[in-house]
Nucleic acid binder design. Structure first.
Lengths: 197, 197
DNA sequence: ATTTGCAACTTGACACTGTCAAGTTAATTG
DNA sequence: CAATTAACTTGACAGTGTCAAGTTGCAAAT
């Protein structure tokens, strides 16, 4: 007979199932709903099963953060791919993907960006280990950099869209219905960016 | 005999003492150390005493956020007061106060800015109820505003310094020791700001 | 001055959490 | 087929937020 997948244990890929359950819980009930025991229950295993795949709750959170970062990167990349192939549209598309991810995955995004991790640490090749940040770097590349080099451009763009996304999601911006909603393009029109060449 | 302050209950101002204890716990052990029971113990009362002064843990967190916002406002204001009295120095001073608060009070700042609250909601007079945000608005006022008005300037400045502070504290920026540390002034040189008149 | 009322606080309980130690099961290996 | 081992279960423990029911002490009312 074929391999039974209904067996009491030996779930096909429990680790992945737990991460997925965790993200579901996060989206459904916010960060306080993310619980090792609830993840285990949702994946149909005992309450202590997760301990064999992660180092405690903090380990699960790290794994969820990794998975979230990959979702984040593809969200931005697909926005870029759908945009006109020139610097400003691509930059704006990336930022809209950034903001959109925060809006659509509030709890996950907040979890991810409240983790201490060194996203910008460069590996030997000068690239970073984080796919999302590499996308941002690429989107910033076509612009003229000031005396501080490309890094200042990247920091400014990143800080601006990160702060805007965070404040928006937290309801700390644009909550006055009388005022017009500000767009990503409006926001970035305040930034000193010029296409090189 | 004089009023004994050692009495089993009737602490002078328990509410304030609990808020203070909460902030201490936050600074000492991060957000996971902030606990109703530990606050109560530190203030020398029983574990259920806080319930009479706040609506559960969420209520204590709100109260701590309020207290933190006031600390935040005075931190920025005192930086401004110590700066040269002209627009750019004042803006930079405010931002340095902003960043500094995040560095010196990481856990508190993260707690505050992960609360959903409508900081920018304007009251009748056009001012907001939040002192910290009013300081930011004042620091932005002397600059020329684009077609989107002062609001766009405020959003851009706020997003930029919020994102930068957050990313810095989370270790997601400036973690490459080979690269130079970027300053607030460097960051804001990327922004399109000109003094009016 | 005594009673009454009430707000502040305590005590005890409950369900839920993360984590650990020990047991059980199933699949692989020799 | 026996032994090993990784995956998972079971049970326990301390800590948590929250609720219900006391207790206490002060202040106003009679």
């Amino acid at each position: 007979m074929s391999k039974s997948t209904q067996k009491p244990h030996h779930h096909g890929d429990l680790r992945a199932a737990l991460i997925l359950s965790g993200i579901e819980l996060l989206e459904e009930g916010g960060v306080t709903a993310l619980t090792l025991r609830k993840c285990a229950a949702r994946a149909g295993v005992s309450h202590a099963a997760p301990a064999h795949h992660f180092e405690g709750l903090q380990g699960l959170i790290r794994a969820i953060t990794d998975r979230g970062m990959s979702m984040f990167a593809t969200a931005m990349q697909s926005k870029i791919d759908a945009a006109e192939d020139s610097p400003f549209p691509r930059l704006y598309a990336m930022c809209e993907g950034y903001l959109n991810f925060f809006i659509e995955h509030q709890a996950l995004a907040n979890l991810m960006f409240n983790q201490k991790s060194e996203l910008m640490t460069k590996s030997a090749g000068g690239r970073t280990t984080n796919a999302a940040f590499n996308i941002l770097v690429s989107a910033c590349a076509p612009f003229i950099h000031g005396p501080l080099g490309h890094q200042a451009t990247e920091y400014a763009v990143w800080s601006l869209i990160q702060g805007f996304s965070h404040l928006t999601v937290m309801g700390q911006i644009s909550c006055d219905p009388n005022q017009p909603q500000i767009s990503v393009a409006d926001l970035f029109s305040m930034l000193n960016l010029q296409v090189a060449e």
